[in-house]
Amino acid sequence: MLELNNIYKSFNVGTIDEKILFQNFNLNVKNGEFVAIVGSNGSGKTTALNIVSGDVKPDSGSVLLDGKNITKQKNYQRAAKIARVFQNPSMGTSPSMTIMENMSLADNKGKRYDLTKGLNTKRRDFYRSQLELLGMGLENRMETQTGALSGGQRQALALIMATMKTPTLLLLDEHTAALDPKSSDIVMTLTEKVVKEKNITTLMVTHNLRYAVEYGTRAIMMHEGGIVLDISGEKKKQQSINDYLKIFNEISIECGN
């Protein structure tokens, strides 16, 4: 359903800062897969997601979604099918607007943003029920500006908003990295639940190896713009944190550090 074919990407070409990241990078994700992506800093995880979302243009190569070549589409055009939650909790909501306003905004995705009423009061009960599931007490704070919420609360809200209109593909880029361990676990549990219930194909970059072990149907490890490990199914289930760490260490030794 998602194909990255022969992707090449370099930054700052022709300067001393030149960085050749992807050379013939390929990735094929099947419908319904929940892919956990791990890898060292600078291995290209974020750039790979940005190429999928259209925030970064590859030098060459193609991106296919549901068999359709979307390489030339702009980020906001791709957003019709692709949803995204970022590492920074403030990027998923509009801070000066209330929870209710934010949810109404997200609920209207795919439709026109015209001169009809912005607040979707008819769906208030539905929004409330969604918030109740979080167990964060947000259902009683629907008139609060999201800028006043904690990182964990905002991230949980961002996830609900991103998946309110079921996307074809969900991109999560270290979406729990900025949170304390407890909020991090809450958001991760919510992620698993939403992804399973709505059967959304998902790419999740995570810094947390435990999450890569516990969640997802497929795990990918990246290193210096390449994929060094790609396991799924039974094989993934048997992989332990130590197995991941071993590969990590081997890679580091190869690099000589």
Partner: peptide
């Protein structure tokens, strides 16, 4: 709805893209 979008674009441009 249009006004909501206007408010969110100054607040968080990225959100408008994801919408």
């Amino acid at each position: 709805k249009s006004g909501f979008l206007l408010k969110s674009v100054g607040d968080n441009e990225g959100l408008v893209v994801t919408l």
